[in-house]
Amino acid sequence: MSEFLKKAFSLVFVYAISRSAFGADSTMVRKYRLLPRVYTLQYAGNLGFLSGGLGYSLVKDKVRVGLFYGYVPKVFSTKAIHTVALKGTLNLFKSRAGQDKLYIGTTLNMETGNNSFLKLPDKYPKGYYKTNAFHLTVFTGVKSFFAVQERKLKGIEPYIECGTVDSYLYYCISERLSFFDILSLSVGLNLKFK
């Protein structure tokens, strides 16, 4: 399952990047309007050691949604971890010049293969466990836009995010743990295309 998703995702990723890089003239732009315009590379953030994403910017760039694939190599865990995730962000404030933005966001992560399952295996009685392949994360972040004078590339946007996972947050609140125990950081780079 995850193997298939991995392949499908990398195909779409390569295709989309090649379209943006080489399909330069304006008619092409119109023709491929549905192609993702935001390409992201992220480090950490419970999406993987490294994750890549394709995204759309909506509502005058106030909202971003993207599909991510993340990978944790074996050296950081006993078994490699593949994560597929949907990520959405919403801008809250921006600086006066408009380059720096503060936003909140969430991801829905899916991982199967490390004794985590979408559907309860048959050996268990009905309702023994709920699926443990999904996790929600919530985070807040800041990003700064740097314009690039390039035909297709509008600009680059480094960002830093601070967030946590649903279960951790639940334990933190219900068992009165310290927030510092559950928060973690991630950094990334958005490439924004025209």
Binding site: N46, L47, V72, H135, V165, S186
Partner: peptide
Amino acid sequence: NGVFEYSPYVTQ
């Protein structure tokens, strides 16, 4: 240490 987390499923 431990500032960046890669996945809830990490076992290290």
